[in-house]
């Protein structure tokens, strides 16, 4: 029998992979993709919870749709800013972006 906990474990693993990517990758685009992985973990969690915990109202599904939409907007914005950075510095390696120290 598959329960909510199984989904939560998968989603936790996905979230951990995404977080590792954010912390370890040096390319801004790969960091963005890792953030998308984290958001997908969120969606998986929300949808599973909606089905198991809240079957009458499905609030989680609605939140998931909003998360997908906001994530799309976020990536659009982030890529535009990264592109602008690439035009002025010819790199998107986060280790080389150090006019100001982190």
């Amino acid at each position: 029998m598959i329960e909510l906990a199984h989904f939560q474990i998968v989603s936790g693993a996905l979230f951990a992979v995404g977080m590792y990517g954010v912390l370890a990758r040096r390319s801004a685009v790969l960091v963005l993709m890792s953030i998308e992985l984290m958001l997908n973990a969120v969606n998986l969690n929300l949808i599973a919870s909606a089905v198991f915990i809240d079957p009458s109202k499905f609030t989680g599904l609605i939140i998931a749709i909003f998360v997908i939409t906001v994530a799309a907007a976020e990536v659009g914005l982030a890529l535009a800013i990264v592109l602008r950075l690439f035009r002025s510095r010819a790199t998107i390696n986060l280790d080389e972006i150090e006019l100001m120290k982190w």
Partner: peptide
């Protein structure tokens, strides 16, 4: 801008994961 949006998106994902666990 790049530093802000990367960290901002990262923190939103963490916040949302917390929301999804709470909702669960």
């Amino acid at each position: 801008g790049v530093k802000y949006i990367l960290i901002g998106a990262f923190s939103s994902a963490i916040l949302l994961y917390g929301v999804s666990l709470l909702y669960g």
